[in-house]
Design a binder for these strands. Sequence first.
DNA 1: GCCCGCATGTAAGACGTTACATGATTAC
DNA 2: GTAATCATGTAACGTCTTACATGCGGGC
Lengths: 186, 186
Amino acid sequence: MGAGRVPLRYFLLGLLAQEPMSGYDIKQFLKQLGWLIGSPSCGSLYPALRALLKDGLATVDTTQSKGKPLRKVYTLTAAGKQALHRWLGLPATSFTLKDFAMRLLLANHLAPAQVIHHLRQRRADVADHQEHIERAIEVTGTTGSSGRRFALDYALALARAELAWLDGTLSALVRESSRSVVETAV
Amino acid sequence: MGAGRVPLRYFLLGLLAQEPMSGYDIKQFLKQLGWLIGSPSCGSLYPALRALLKDGLATVDTTQSKGKPLRKVYTLTAAGKQALHRWLGLPATSFTLKDFAMRLLLANHLAPAQVIHHLRQRRADVADHQEHIERAIEVTGTTGSSGRRFALDYALALARAELAWLDGTLSALVRESSRSVVETAV
DNA sequence: GCCCGCATGTAAGACGTTACATGATTAC
DNA sequence: GTAATCATGTAACGTCTTACATGCGGGC
């Protein structure tokens, strides 16, 4: 696989699981999330959708509204849902920001415990990264180019912000899930 | 060009401008910056270095320390420096996080005014993105999947943090550069 | 004896981007 | 009439990743 990255098709599985969509719908939906994940180009999106079809992970429903171009709405099959859950559930080796964002967006397909698990893993990764940067800053001191200091400072600021968000979200989730456990118990 | 992305070779130009390095050195240096930019794989790094050679943008100096494998230290030529400045100076269409980080790391090759300009441009981009996300959050309200809410919230937190860093850094830079202008005037 | 760090390199393949092509409708 | 939106698709291209190959030296 091209990288440790999430190939588009896995992500599409997740989007289609929310609700059947056409290629165009998917582009609009992602555009509307701005940068975080980014909108795939036609050249990758449409072939990826057809690949799902070919692998039996989705079915199409072509509709032709009057005066509109034809739309091909894709729906996940049982096999598709299975593939999605295989992907979401499994190891999830340290993901990049974009990969993490993709999984986050698909959080509602996971049990709360799994969401918490993913967030904790990301937390550990980011904490690692932060430490790494802090060490690099210590080592550098005032030596090194100004660019290097800028970059390290920038990296540190972003890492800290992400950690703060993760901690806040995690504690909210944990509180919520423990409450629901209590409710269930009562 | 594969994407709006910075191909490795431009970035290498910037790294070699700081000081002559071997491929291995470059990997170590970037690893040490952690995630921000990421360390390129051998398969992209070594060919990219030889491409610089081929284009006359760098020269090699092969050294063989006793008992060590041979090292090929690359040095920029005048043409290489020119190419770097062409790249750094020019339009710089809206860059992704990674592209921006690359340029940031190379900030010391730019005049302070240019650095400020790049930061302002990034600021504008991030502010746009933030607004975009805020609108999306308003529109969604409590509808939409929990994953979507998570992702939007996450995106917003990161955008805010980046804006804060940019504002802080910009004001420091502007203060500094105006002081030096005053000093020059005096 | 084995694995890790140093150090460079190649080949095959995956992935995605740009740019182009098509075509109807709606709004200015 | 000219542009933008809806909507799908193809072809060429570039870039990067993985996995492999090579080889010496030092630490356990």
